[in-house]
Amino acid sequence: MEKTFIKTGIFGGTFNPVHIGHLALANYLCEYEDLDEVWFLVTPQNPFKKDVRLLDDRIRLEMVEAATRGYPRFRASDFEFGLPRPSYTVDTLRKLSETYPEREFTLIIGADNWAKFDEWRSPEEILRKYQIMVYPRSGYDLHIPDTVQGHVKAVQTPLLEISSTFIRRAITEGKDICYFVHPEVYRIIREKKLYISE
C-alpha cells in the first residue's frame, strides 16, 4: 500500500509584520493547489536581509499565530528559532524532513526570489528533493525552464501589492491601516505600540 504524505507548504519570511497579502496567498494555495496545510515559518534572520532591523522573534511569531488561528489549514511555526543563524532554506528543509517524515514539503516562494534562486545555498539539492511553488510578483517575469518542470510550478495567485515595509511606514506616519492586517495583528501592533518610532 502506497504511503500517503501530508502535503505541507512552507511559507518562510520575517513577517515583519504578517499582513493580508500573506494570508490571502496562503489561503489560495490551500484551496486551489494540492496542499493540505501551509506553515508560516517565521525566520529569525534572512541571509539576504542582514541589515534589516527586525522586531523580536517572539513578537513576530505572536502576530503570525494571531493571524492564522482561525483557519485550520494554517500553522504558525517557530521551527527555525532553534536552528543556526542565519537561516538557510536548504538546512531548514533537511531538518523539517527529518523531524516530520510523514509530511511532503513544498517550498513557497515569490517570483522575485525565484529570479535569484541560483544564488541560494545548494539550490540543486532543493530542486532535487522538494517541490517548489512560485507565485507572481509585480515587475518579475515568472518563467519556469523546461529543465525543472515537474519540480517547480508557477501558480497564478491573485496579485496583492502589499508589503510589510509599506505597513511599517504607514504606522510610523500615523496612518490607520486596519484593513491591511488581520484584526488581531492590528490589536497587537496598537497595544504594544509597534513600529511607531521606525
Rank of each mutant, 00 (worst) to 15 (best):
T4Y: 14
I6K: 15
I6G: 10
K7R: 15
I10S: 08
F11S: 08
G13C: 09
F15L: 05
F15H: 04
N16C: 07
N16M: 06
N16D: 15
V18M: 04
G21D: 02
A24F: 01
A24N: 01
A26S: 10
N27A: 00
L29K: 07
Y32V: 03
D34R: 11
D34N: 15
L35N: 05
L35F: 05
L35M: 08
D36V: 09
D36S: 13
W39A: 07
W39Q: 07
V42A: 03
V42H: 02
P47K: 12
P47N: 14
F48C: 08
K49R: 14
K50Y: 10
R53A: 09
D56P: 08
R58Y: 10
R60D: 06
E62M: 09
A66K: 02
T68E: 01
R69I: 00
Y71P: 00
Y71G: 00
P72M: 00
R75V: 06
S77M: 10
F79V: 11
E80A: 14
F81T: 12
G82L: 11
G82S: 14
P84H: 15
P84G: 15
P86K: 14
Y88A: 14
V90A: 14
D91L: 13
L93Y: 12
T99A: 14
Y100E: 10
E102F: 07
E102Q: 14
F105K: 05
T106A: 10
L107I: 11
L107W: 13
I108K: 03
I108E: 05
G110W: 08
D112P: 05
D112K: 07
W114G: 06
K116M: 13
F117Q: 07
D118T: 14
W120R: 13
P123M: 11
I126S: 11
L127K: 08
R128F: 09
Y130V: 07
Q131C: 11
Q131M: 12
Q131A: 12
P136K: 04
P136F: 04
R137E: 07
G139T: 08
D141G: 06
L142W: 05
I144F: 11
P145M: 12
P145C: 12
D146M: 12
T147Y: 10
G150M: 13
H151D: 11
V152S: 05
A154P: 06
P158N: 00
L159C: 01
L160M: 03
E161T: 02
E161P: 00
I167L: 08
I167D: 02
R168T: 04
A170K: 04
T172A: 10
G174F: 06
D176R: 05
V181P: 01
P183K: 00
E184G: 01
Y186S: 02
R187N: 03
I189R: 04
E191T: 11
L194D: 06
Y195R: 05
S197D: 13
S197L: 08
